[in-house]
Design a protein around this nucleic acid. Structure first.
Lengths: 122, 122
DNA sequence: GTGCATGCAAAGGGTTTGCACGCGC
DNA sequence: GCGCGTGCAAACCCTTTGCATGCAC
């Protein structure tokens, strides 16, 4: 069952690729409908899940928010503006995070989310 | 509309207070039913939402997991074991986190979640 | 022509809400 | 007795799934 490169999939990829910040499912659907009005929600979900499984995109989960999706890239973290609700990508990471790991525990990965005001809202 | 201190509410508080780790809604309901079998899911949700609003408890959100709840306490973070799926509380925090904030942004708070193996599973 | 991908609609899981009953005051 | 809190069931929202159609090859 080799994947077919249909118009729908190309459009989901295209919308994702253009994004400068993580997008919600509905933003992706709305963006895709501009190119193919018949695009369905189920197809967007199916394509997103496929892309997550193959590791091409990543899910960004912010408590209280719907999931967002972004092109997979180097390890990084996120900043959620509490005023405009946009989510931004942050560069860098903290090696000091190992200090939090209790004795006997073995950390493999981590997520960091910052909250506050973005440049435009501050 | 001053709140009444009903049996149901006392039981939700009691279950939360006994917990040594964040609990899911269904764990709280199951725990409460041991004391009051007629306890309903809607009441648990209503009481939890009230306690979150008053700041008495906090929601712990782990991507891909149902929300958990814990008694509000000093600032801390969480560790999710990828094998047994339990969530543990971590002590301490990282002042270095300010290094991640971009210029012009104003950070107010943050969440850190570690993933890996707990002591029992490592 | 064959078969997978799509769109629709229904199903599913988790959470909230409307309503009538009954307990707490 | 009055009114809020409760339990039930329905409603909601988000996501997944079943199925018939139709496009890609």
């Amino acid at each position: 069952m080799q994947a077919r490169n249909t118009r729908q999939k190309q459009i989901v990829d295209k919308v994702m690729g253009k994004a400068t910040r993580p997008l919600t499912v509905h933003e992706i659907l709305a963006g895709g409908k501009k190119f193919l009005p018949s695009l369905g929600l189920a197809t967007v979900y199916r394509e997103l899940n496929r892309l997550v499984e193959t590791g091409e995109i990543q899910t960004v989960t912010i408590p209280g928010d719907p999931p967002r999706y972004e092109i997979a890239k180097q390890h990084h973290h996120h900043f959620k503006c509490t005023k405009c609700d946009n989510v931004y990508e942050l560069e860098g990471c903290l090696k000091e995070i190992t200090k939090l790991v209790p004795k006997g525990f073995k950390a493999e990965s981590h997520d960091i989310t910052l909250y506050g005001l973005c440049r435009a809202c501050a």
